[in-house]
């Protein structure tokens, strides 16, 4: 049983921003798919006095692909991503993550902004987005700002978003043809399971040289993170099996996994090593 709260269902973004700023004296918490917030509210981990539902504003949902950029509305659902033909050509790692995300009903409700805002280190959409150099657009009554997703999280369940700010978009540059983005989720079973290790890789190659390497890791640290030292070992280089193994080992050093009910820290480190090397090898193989 949920405890009581006030609920607003505004049909404009301005209406939402007013309510999360101070509302009627009680700042309201934004609610989209409810697959995280309602669960937390029922478990009494959070008990907001006021909630504002975002589902009455159609322009917050949708996928826009322009010549240079891809932009997701905050309320774009995981199923929207999974069923998008456009993303299949400019962010396929995100489509793979959507496929491995929860069960069908959760995918139909859960939103991309919610998956960022809930700050889960085991988020499935964040690693591919981070590897794509995605940016988060935050808006409030006092203006808007753009934050790189890899600077969005500041600690376990902590981020840069102020409570009067709403995520109003997620965008990234369209990838050049000579690039590949990949994602692999390791979990106890294929469907509807919490991630044990998530790895996203994004690579661009030109004339036999790795021009861009991105490695984002999920469920192995207090936040999703990039293995930046491992990335820098690869950029400017011609990749070899030895270099890929070394970079994957470096990625395990940059993570700080814990033992929990799903896996041990040792197993998670092993998972990072194997999956990072596998995805780097696949990416390099496709581009050379």
């Amino acid at each position: 049983m949920l405890s009581g709260f006030e609920l607003d269902l505004p049909d404009t973004l301005v209406g939402v921003l007013d309510l999360i700023a101070d509302g009627r004296g009680t700042p309201a918490v934004p609610l989209a798919g409810g697959t995280s917030l309602i669960v937390d509210m029922r478990a009494r981990r959070t008990m907001p006095n006021a909630v504002v539902w975002l589902g009455k504003i159609p322009e917050l949902r949708g996928i826009q692909v322009t010549q240079d950029h891809v932009r997701l509305g905050p309320c774009t659902t995981v199923s929207d991503i999974l069923n998008s033909d456009e993303l299949a050509g400019s962010g396929v790692s995100l489509v793979r993550a959507a496929e491995a995300f929860g069960g069908q009903m959760v995918r139909n409700a859960a939103t991309v902004a919610g998956n960022i805002a809930c700050n889960s280190p085991a988020s499935d959409l964040v690693p591919p987005l981070m590897a794509l150099d995605a940016e988060v657009i935050l808006e409030s009554r006092s203006g808007s700002r753009t934050v790189a997703l890899d600077r969005y999280f500041t600690g376990y369940k902590e981020d840069v978003r102020r409570t009067d700010e709403l995520i109003t978009g997620i965008s990234w540059k369209r990838q050049e043809e000579s690039s590949v983005d990949l994602f692999h989720k390791l979990a106890r079973r294929k469907g509807d399971a919490i991630t044990v290790v998530g790895v996203a890789v994004n690579m661009a190659v030109s004339d036999g040289t790795c021009m861009r390497a991105r490695i984002a890791l999920g469920a192995v640290a207090p936040t999703v993170l990039r293995a930046k030292r491992a990335e820098s070992m690869l950029e400017g280089e011609t990749l070899t099996p030895g270099l890929i193994e070394a970079a994957a080992r470096q990625a395990t050093e940059e993570a700080s996994p814990i033992d929990d009910v799903r896996a041990s820290a040792t197993y998670r480190r092993h998972g990072i090593q194997v999956l990072t090397a596998r995805l780097l090898t696949q990416a390099w193989g496709r581009l050379t």
């Binding site: 798919g33 309602i38 929860g102 069960g103 009903m105 139909n108 409700a109």
Partner: peptide, 20 residues
């Protein structure tokens, strides 16, 4: 909690967990 799907209903043709 959105894990079991027993409460699923269609809302405008799309299955949702009614508990969430």
């Amino acid at each position: 909690k959105g894990d079991c799907g027993a409460c699923a209903v269609l809302v405008d043709g799309v299955a949702l967990d009614s508990c969430l």
